[in-house]
C-alpha cells in the first residue's frame, strides 16, 4: 500500500510555476498619425501567427541579402515562443516584405531615420492610419549615396537592415536610447535587451492594425 501511495504521490508532487520577469518599461513602439477624422491615432501592429513565417524578398544579387538573413535571425532569436518567424523567398510576388537597395520613392509615407548614418540610410512603409491597415507588401529601403567600397558600409547596411526589419515586425517608432538598434540613428550592431523586451511587449498586446492585400 505504501508503494502505491508513493507512486500516486508523484502525480501531485510539486506545482511551481516559472517566474517570468517583468519587462522593463519598453520604449514607445506605436505609430502616431492623423486618422480619417483628423484625430491623432496610435497604431499598433504585429504579424498574426496564422501568417508565420513571414515571407521576405530580397534579390539574390542584392548587397543587402546577407544582412537580411542576419536581421531575420536576430529578430527571431529575440522571441521565446516563436512569435516572429520569417523566411527569404525567391518570388517578390509572394512576399509580405520587400527589401530594396534604393532610395524610397518620393513622398511615399514611411518611417524614416531622423538622421542618416554616416554611410547609409533607411526607410520603411508606414501603416495606413486612416484605415488601420498595413498594406502588403511592406517595403523597406536601405541605401547609400556613397561608393560600395566605402569603409564601414557593410556594417552600416547590417545595422540599418536590422533597424528597418524592426519596423516591419511592428516596432513602428524609434527608441530614444542610442544603445538600441531602434534608435533613430542606430550604432548598435545587434539587438539590445530593451529592443527585445519592447518587441515582446508589442507581440503580447492586441494589435489595432491588420495586414491587407496579399494572402
Amino acid at each position: 500500500m505504501r508503494r502505491l501511495l508513493l507512486v500516486a504521490a508523484l502525480a501531485g508532487v510539486g506545482c511551481t510555476t516559472i517566474a517570468s520577469p517583468t519587462r522593463i518599461s519598453p520604449y514607445e513602439y506605436k505609430y502616431f498619425a492623423i486618422d480619417g477624422n483628423g484625430d491623432t491615432t496610435a497604431i499598433t501592429f504585429h504579424w498574426p501567427r496564422s501568417m508565420l513565417p513571414i515571407r521576405i524578398f530580397v534579390p539574390d544579387t542584392s548587397v543587402l541579402r546577407p544582412h537580411v538573413a542576419t536581421a531575420i535571425q536576430r529578430w527571431q532569436d529575440a522571441f521565446l515562443y516563436g512569435e516572429y518567424r520569417a523566411v527569404i523567398v525567391s518570388d517578390s510576388n509572394q512576399a509580405d516584405v520587400i527589401f530594396e537597395n534604393n532610395l524610397p520613392p518620393f513622398l511615399r509615407a514611411g518611417i524614416r531615420m531622423d538622421a542618416m548614418a554616416p554611410q547609409c540610410g533607411g526607410a520603411t512603409d508606414a501603416p495606413d492610419a486612416a484605415t488601420h491597415t498595413v498594406p502588403l507588401p511592406l517595403h523597406s529601403y536601405v541605401y547609400t549615396p556613397l561608393p560600395l567600397t566605402t569603409p564601414g558600409l557593410d556594417a552600416c547596411y547590417r545595422i540599418t537592415v536590422t533597424h528597418e526589419m524592426g519596423h516591419t515586425i511592428g516596432l513602428l517608432n524609434h527608441s530614444p536610447f542610442s544603445t538600441d538598434v531602434m534608435y533613430s540613428n542606430p550604432l548598435l550592431d545587434g539587438i539590445s535587451t530593451n529592443d527585445r523586451e519592447t518587441a515582446e511587449t508589442a507581440y503580447h498586446v492586441p494589435a489595432n492594425a491588420v495586414p491587407t492585400g496579399r494572402r
Binding site: V13, T17, I18, A19, P21, L80
Partner: peptide, 14 residues
Amino acid sequence: VLRARGYGGNQSVQ
C-alpha cells in the same frame, strides 16, 4: 535561455 532572460525558478512538469 530562460535563465539568461531573468526567468526565476523552474516550471514543475509532470
